[in-house]
Design a protein around this nucleic acid. Structure first.
Length: 314
DNA sequence: ACTATTTCCTGGATGC
DNA sequence: TGCATCCAGGAAATAG
């Protein structure tokens, strides 16, 4: 499974939520499967929440385009598209039963982007979004919001029960914030200078760093020995260096684990396994710290549950 | 310019 | 068993 249903690891139930490592894994899996494929037609559902760009604009950008690459930017999945030759766009047969919105329906809607040479389809999975490569006969899951019919005969489907995910198109998508695995230590340290907000909130702020979510923020803070409520500006350079290293370590470990499950999980119904990092604090309230046995604490910071070891983190 | 809080959304868990 | 309530999360919107 990807992130649309719980999976079981021992006795503990986890939702696989897409943060940087999961999105990286998903993007790599998709790149393997759909790079070079042609998007023949697009169906978009009626729910408005998942569509950050107008439906007409999304359909127009995608239909007839070829997927030249798939990559991750922060928590976003970016599909780089080679635009269709103009003549190709108007002659595609498509299934009647599923179509609701296509570029032809709204050809005169007046949205731009057609002149751009680098159009991109941007997908944010939110909490429960998933992208699935499946055969056309595969039953359409509840909460399917987009179906891309590919020239290879398969379909790429976007499914998202809670509709926190977002679909949009762009021409030079650049995200916000810095990539945690690319930023150097000096810039990382500078991000927190003068910030009174709790370090946990700063880590979650996508305008500072992109791709870090609730789980990896908690895990990185544990590895750095820093309590989540500490004001960012009060943390010494030495401890920020530990945070920098801890964050990179935990993200890289999780990506490596993802790499081992990459082959299965975006196929078919998207419910294949996904190896999960063994959390040290996240979701372990009351359980003994893996280092010192002290019970893990849970507090709420900016509306997000935050877990830490009161002994190991100061 | 920052920071904190509220809102969106479904379904699984929990409580009476 | 049934029904109401709470909770999870990212990020945009709102308020201070």
């Amino acid at each position: 499974m990807v992130c649309s249903r719980p999976t079981y690891v021992g006795y503990v139930r986890f939702w696989i939520m897409p943060e940087l490592p999961e999105v990286e894994t998903i993007a790599r899996g998709l790149a393997k499967r759909v790079t070079g494929d042609l998007i023949e037609s697009v169906w978009l559902g009626q729910k408005k929440e998942p569509l950050k760009s107008p439906a007409a604009q999304i359909a127009k950008a995608l239909e007839g385009s070829r997927i030249s690459s798939v990559r991750r930017v922060g928590k976003h999945i970016v599909f780089d598209l080679d635009p269709a030759p103009a003549a190709q766009k108007l002659s595609r047969p498509r299934s009647k039963s599923r179509r609701r919105t296509t570029s032809q329906d709204l050809a005169h809607a007046g949205h731009g982007l057609q002149a751009a040479s680098h159009v991109q389809w941007i997908v944010h999975l939110g909490m429960t979004g998933s992208l699935r490569v499946c055969e056309p006969q595969t039953e359409i899951a509840k909460h399917t919001h987009a179906i891309l019919k590919l020239a290879s005969g398969r379909e790429l489907r976007f499914v998202d029960p809670r509709r926190f995910g977002r679909l949009s198109v762009a021409t030079a998508f650049d995200g916000t914030g810095l990539e945690p695995l690319e930023v150097d230590l000096a810039r990382f340290v500078a991000l927190f200078r003068g910030r009174k907000t709790p370090i946990k909130s700063a880590l979650l702020n996508q305008k500072l760093l992109r791709g870090v979510g609730n789980i990896y923020a908690d895990e990185a803070l544990f590895r750095a020995g820093i309590r989540p409520r500490r004001r960012a500006s009060s943390i010494t350079r030495d401890h920020l260096a530990k945070l920098y290293a801890g964050l990179q370590r935990v993200l890289n470990e999780a990506i490596e684990l993802g790499g081992s499950s990459i082959s299965d999980y975006v196929d078919a119904d998207g419910e294949e396994g996904f190896f999960q990092l063994r959390h040290r604090v996240y979701g372990r309230e009351g359980e003994p710290c893996r280092v010192c046995k002290t019970p893990i604490k849970r507090v709420v910071i900016a509306g997000r549950s935050s877990h830490y070891c009161p002994e190991c983190q100061k």
